[in-house]
């Protein structure tokens, strides 16, 4: 065997081993990301259940749960950001990401219902926005809409924004879509029960919200 052939084979092995190590490292890192997301979701699940139970126990004074609800919504927002990042790294079709998104959507729906119940019981009027988007390539304005909602949530924490992947195969989400009667082109928004479709600019979008919305403070969550 000539020195060229020998060195070529060794170099191929070395390059292959390095590439394999790099791919393994990235997979390990992504698995760790998924594991962290899963841990956060489990924690939020417990917190949601706890809040639900607390709400039931405090029938006489349900408004004591408002602070817990606000904290929980903040945690959901952080989870949403992480899930969005994981989705960008692993792809929208990754089975683990899809599974986590389903769990996340369930937590969002549960939080949305608790928020509504608390609002009714405590006679408060939180601004609640439901946002439906698509990652299937059929929604050219969804990026902008998601970004605008992130900006509004960060700047005006009084908003409670719940983002849902319209195409996610989840029974509870399909029911939510059915009862809210979202049937127009995406992105779709329901702000305090009022429907709107499409996104043009931040200024136009802000007009969908009740007057005085952008002065109060509460936590929300964004598109995953």
């Amino acid at each position: 065997m000539s020195i060229f052939v020998r060195n070529s084979l060794i170099a191929l092995l070395v390059a292959g081993a390095i590439t394999g190590t790099v791919i393994y490292t990235i997979n390990y890192l992504n698995d760790a990301r998924i594991a962290e997301l899963s841990t956060i979701e489990n924690q939020i699940y417990v917190d949601t259940l706890s809040l639900d139970t607390q709400f039931s126990l405090l029938e006489a004074a349900p408004c004591d749960s408002v602070a817990s609800s606000t904290t929980l919504t903040g945690e959901l927002a952080d989870l949403g950001e992480r899930l969005s990042y994981a989705e960008s790294q692993l792809g929208t079709n990754d089975s683990q990401v899809v599974q986590l998104k389903k769990q996340y959507s369930l937590l969002e729906i549960r939080d949305y219902l608790i928020t509504k119940e608390l609002a009714a019981a405590c006679h408060t009027k939180p601004v609640i926005a439901l946002y439906f988007y698509s990652n299937a390539g059929d929604c050219s304005d969804c990026d902008k809409a998601g970004y605008a909602l992130s900006y509004l949530r960060t700047t005006y924490p009084a908003l409670r924004v719940y983002s849902f992947d319209y195409n996610l195969n989840l029974g509870a989400l399909k029911t939510l879509i059915a009862i809210t009667k979202v049937n127009g082109p995406l992105p779709a928004f329901i702000v305090n029960g009022k429907h709107s479709y499409g996104f043009t600019s931040l200024a136009d979008f802000q007009k969908q919200f009740p007057k005085g919305t952008f002065a109060s403070t509460t936590a929300t969550n964004t598109k995953p």
């Binding site: 790099v22 890192l29 950001e81 990042y85 990026d143 902008k144 970004y147 996104f199 600019s201």
Partner: peptide, 30 residues
């Protein structure tokens, strides 16, 4: 994206600084 948020927001960092957001990919590492 300037239609969706002010430039000042676009140029600021929004996520928390944790290992979770490290931009390590096969491309960057290689």
């Amino acid at each position: 994206m300037t239609q969706a948020a002010p430039l000042s927001y676009m140029l600021s960092w929004h996520s928390s600084f944790t290992w979770f957001y490290l931009p390590i990919t096969v491309l960057t590492l290689l």
